[in-house]
Write a protein that binds this DNA or RNA. Structure first.
Lengths: 149, 149
DNA sequence: CTATATTGTAATTTATTTTGTTACAGTTTA
DNA sequence: TAAACTGTAACAAAATAAATTACAATATAG
């Protein structure tokens, strides 16, 4: 009573703390009120390697949230008002995998359920993600930052 | 301009495909209409190791979704009607980490932002998770299974 | 103009997490 | 009583994430 094995499609996952890191960075920059903040200082607050911070800053920059200045006394600052940064945008900027789990599953196409499950899981993931994004879109970086003492 | 390093609290993460696996298992069992299905057969459909299936079945059993029979001709079946299994319950049964990312961050308590960020991230994660659960609670295993041809 | 502080990024290593494998005891049934 | 199962534990392998090293490029202060 065993189905023959079979494999095929493949996807990357990514369950890491990038959302937390990005939000931490953005909060620090909001509190800095436009003053440039170095990646070393940021890394010291998050307690992670400065190179990771710079990679995350690079992504945030590509999404228009921050801008950076190179050279001595350089650093980063917000590129737009914290009122205009919604958390769904931040989530979308860092998100790389599905909300409910990785999707590198390669079910057996000879099984009637296995053959279709990815399609139905995708539908489910997509609709739940929409709800999540809608929820996050109601909160701005300014709101988040304001909650700090 | 660098904050001194400091570490402390620690959490486990878990970004894997357990939700997909559990839902796959439950769908197979629903389609089996009460007939016992072996972990080897299930593993063949999902295309993963049978031991992983048995571990997941163990968890589903502990949550009252399935029952299993040991010994020759043994296997598993649903312990309750697919109408009475909501997807938020399945999610809760497999979930071990935060929705928006792992939470093993150990920010610097000497930084005013680092000191409080975990509290605020937790709040955010909690409220978004509530929304997600509410969305999933509107869908049953029967609904999910029905979508298959 | 030069030393220094900084960003930006690539390449590599290390750590962590997830998945798979092996092994085997216990349970039923034919 | 042999065979087909479940249930777990222990370990190995693979995949992913994070840290580290290295260094070129850039800007500023002195």
């Amino acid at each position: 009573m065993a189905l023959p094995l079979y494999c095929n499609n493949y996807n990357y996952s990514m369950n890491n703390s990038r959302f937390a890191i990005s939000l931490h960075i953005l909060t620090l920059l909001e509190k800095a009120k436009g003053e440039l903040m170095s990646s070393d200082y940021i890394a010291g607050s998050i307690n992670i390697n400065p190179v990771l911070v710079r990679k995350e800053l690079s992504n945030l920059r590509n999404h228009g949230f921050v801008e950076s200045k190179e050279g001595k006394n350089g650093g980063s600052s917000l590129a737009k008002s914290a009122d205009n940064i919604c958390l769904d945008e931040v989530y979308s900027a860092v998100k790389q995998n599905n909300l409910l789990g990785v999707s590198k599953n390669t079910p057996n196409p000879q099984c009637p359920v296995g053959k279709q499950i990815n399609k139905h899981l995708d539908n489910l993931y997509e609709s739940t993600e929409k709800v999540l994004l809608k929820e996050l879109s109601g909160k701005t970086l300014a709101d988040f930052s304001r909650a700090f003492d």
